[in-house]
Amino acid sequence: MVVDPGVPPEVAGLLRANAPLLSRVRAGWVPPAAPPLPRRKSPSSTALLAATPVVIALMAVLLASPAAAAGFVLLGTYVFIVLVKIASMNEVPDNDRPHERGVYEQARWYDGRYLLAEDFDQEARLVLLRAQRAIGSVLRSHVNAEGLLDDARNAVMLPAQEWEIARLLAKLSALRLEHRELLARGIAPEVAAVIQPLERALVNSEAAVVARVEALERYAKHVAEAERAYHARGQIEELRARLPRYEELLAESGADKLAVPEIERLTEDADVLENMLRRSVKSAHEAFRYLEG
């Protein structure tokens, strides 16, 4: 399923984890109302009830004595404690709410901001899968995590692209289903001329969405090239860090003159990979700008 990136992350996680339940909600299912739990008096409630006569008697004694101010303080304190207890009795703990009811409420509240598998026909599912693979490969890449790409913009723009593509594919799937059902009922010759522009609209809309996906795939390809160069550069740097030990061994064995060209070639390879990484990252940035239109 796909969730609008504007949905709070904790709610989006809840929706994704309960896709089958969301399908039931979409079909009209309503969770049964939970029966009210019998309220039992807590020990603190019993203690307050038992203490009431004592507090009243003590307050009367204090009010009749020179320490009348203490009586008013006692009265105020006792009233405050009683009010706090009443407020806590009226609160319903979150864990008393059934899980299904919570999912149902969130599904109703965010209706229209998530899309389920059944919202897409087979063709749309394949296109959406291509987009999700491209986006996932970019977001999981080391070059993105290391900030060589614009990771902040990727984190915002790519989920937004996924949602927009999914939203368009869902609309396209619904219209295609309606169109197939219309054709299945039979079309009068007079209506055939009207049907053709509608079919072209469906084809052109799908082509536009596929073009977006292809742009994402091109971006992902550039990122993959940068990723390969990034890992190769790391391996070269690791080898260069070990060079002094090899040079020491060669010097001690008297074979250092023979190794100089190989060592110089390793340095050249590192420079080539560094330039390759820079070019790959630059290409990825250019592909990103193309995505933004």
Score class of each variant (00 low, 15 high):
A259Y: 09
P5M: 00
K85P: 01
A215T: 10
M59G: 01
I81S: 08
Y114Q: 03
K41F: 11
N204L: 14
A117C: 03
S283Y: 08
V203H: 12
R39L: 13
A211G: 00
R200D: 10
I263T: 10
P98M: 10
Q106W: 09
A19Q: 05
E264N: 15
L21T: 08
R101K: 07
S253A: 15
E105C: 00
L63Q: 01
A208R: 11
E247C: 01
L62I: 08
D256K: 12
V73L: 14
A287D: 05
A170L: 07
A47M: 15
P98L: 12
I195L: 15
V223N: 01
I86W: 13
R40C: 03
W29N: 00
I86Q: 15
E10D: 14
F120W: 05
G13H: 00
P98Y: 06
E146L: 08
V61Q: 03
L48F: 13
R245H: 14
T46A: 10
R39I: 11
R101L: 13
A229M: 12
R242S: 14
V79S: 05
V84S: 10
R278T: 12
S88R: 15
A220V: 03
F72Q: 06
A107G: 02
Y78R: 08
E123M: 06
K85M: 13
A152M: 13
L128Q: 05
L83I: 13
E268R: 14
G234A: 06
A145N: 04
P43K: 05
A47P: 01
A87E: 11
L75C: 03
R278C: 02
P189Q: 02
A12N: 01
D121A: 06
V209M: 04
A160M: 07
L37K: 15
A33G: 06
F80Y: 14
A211L: 01
P20D: 04
A188V: 07
L63E: 01
R40V: 09
A184F: 05
N204D: 13
A27T: 03
A33P: 02
R140N: 15
V194A: 12
R279Q: 14
V260H: 04
R289F: 10
A145W: 06
E225A: 11
L273I: 09
A211H: 00
L273H: 08
L182M: 14
P197A: 11
A160S: 12
A166D: 00
V82Q: 10
G76D: 02
Y114V: 01
A220S: 12
G147F: 06
H231Y: 12
R278Y: 09
Y219L: 15
K85E: 14
E190T: 09
H222V: 07
A226G: 11
T46D: 05
R130E: 04
P159C: 02
A226E: 02
E146K: 11
A174L: 09
S280F: 08
S45E: 15
A224C: 03
L74S: 02
E105M: 05
A117M: 06
V103E: 02
L243T: 09
N144P: 06
A50L: 12
R26A: 07
E292H: 07
R24G: 00
D271A: 15
S283N: 14
D119G: 06
N204H: 08
A68Q: 05
A64R: 13
T52C: 05
R113F: 04
E105D: 09
R265V: 10
S23W: 00
A33Y: 03
A284L: 11
R228I: 10
L175I: 12
A188L: 10
I56L: 15
A220Y: 04
V79E: 06
A145M: 10
G102I: 07
